[in-house]
Write a protein that binds this DNA or RNA. Sequence first.
DNA 1: ACGATCAGCGCAATACCGTTGACAACAGCA
DNA 2: TGCTGTTGTCAACGGTATTGCGCTGATCGT
Lengths: 235, 235
Amino acid sequence: MPKSPANTARSKRAGSQLTPDAIIDASLRIAARGSEDAFTVRRLGEELGADPTAIYRHFRDKDELLLSVADRTLGEVLDSIPEGLDWKGRIRALADGSLAVALKYPVVGSAMASRTTRRPNEFRVVELILGAVMEAGLEGAEAALHYRMVADSLLAYVGQQAAYFLFDAEARAADESAWTREYRLVDPRALPNITRLSAELAEVTDEQIFEATVGALISAIEKRAETLRGPKRPR
Amino acid sequence: MPKSPANTARSKRAGSQLTPDAIIDASLRIAARGSEDAFTVRRLGEELGADPTAIYRHFRDKDELLLSVADRTLGEVLDSIPEGLDWKGRIRALADGSLAVALKYPVVGSAMASRTTRRPNEFRVVELILGAVMEAGLEGAEAALHYRMVADSLLAYVGQQAAYFLFDAEARAADESAWTREYRLVDPRALPNITRLSAELAEVTDEQIFEATVGALISAIEKRAETLRGPKRPR
DNA sequence: ACGATCAGCGCAATACCGTTGACAACAGCA
DNA sequence: TGCTGTTGTCAACGGTATTGCGCTGATCGT
């Protein structure tokens, strides 16, 4: 019963066509097709040219596969972050990279928004954010709290964007035109602010919103660090 | 054979036992049971004492039902916000109320995080947030942008919390103990920050994180309003 | 007052989905 | 050579949302 003793000496005769990595690759190919192609076990089998259920020889269930896929994409994000940035730059790079990869593989981004993979690359992300908030000047419980703020907010936001992106283009277009249209048709007496700002509301872009959100998180860290540093020498 | 003798009174034109409101009520009862009871069409039929497919006489599909349910809960949130609060108070009340109701009906909260209902109560929320950011001193495109920042961030965060809450208690407990356990077992050379802060990381509470996040959003609005107001009279 | 209409409901069936158990082929080892 | 365990295939199960058909009973027109 060589169930899973660590030795295994993988060199010898990996008699299988299917490897975890190959399955993850195929999953990413499907995920990259977004809403045009559902990410199902059967579809995955097709992509691999194998029986769908063969996947269960390598992953306990679809959830475990998804976690592995998510960890791979997390690695993509981390590797895209250049060296030598200051703490704000690292957080911005992490945010931008996360959003980009979540929109590239929307199914993964949306499914993992409320999960924790507990795999290697997740720890690297934690380490990165913690390092950033500590460089900003926070310590101990304050650093831990602000790490969670950044991580949770970012993950939630990015996951939500991915889920929204997963709507097929048709439904999304209807959704957005409805916004601009219905905002103008609203009762001006009951909803004066919407009426007044209907034009501006229609013109806000996702990029602006994301930038503002990330900026808010960074400012919060900065401000907290200043407050904690300041009391001896009030400015 | 009329299904159940109960209704009768229903004067005219309401020969049906099932009404949209009754279905929404039943949906909320199921949703309130969280992860103990899946929110499926079949279960809903059971709850109503009717055939599951009868629901389709009142809602086009499950999605439309969910949107209606979500709008009802949005109303709950809005009605819980007291009069006479300043803009910060109103945003905090909206945030707290949204989180509370999303945790009360986690299935609804998680499913609607990336959707827009385009129903009456959603407009009321938009109006409320817009009013708040304008009272804070923002106008036009700036007001629209910061409304979206607050709305999107809040919805995403709250939805993510609801989704996480939906994990059954067993899995969640394993998840959390794993956090505290694995953070201590991590390689201290590769991940020094995690190692150093493992104790503090385990002690951060959800309430602290939510408070910090909402505070960051409010601060961002305040700061932006100051910047825009300030240029003539730099402090 | 009576018959026609028709909305609301139950029932059976459809098309998916993830997952499992039994079986066959095949590699490595004794 | 035969044993054993891994890996892929196949068929099937129980779950999901949804749809088409037929019945029934209340409503309405006459």
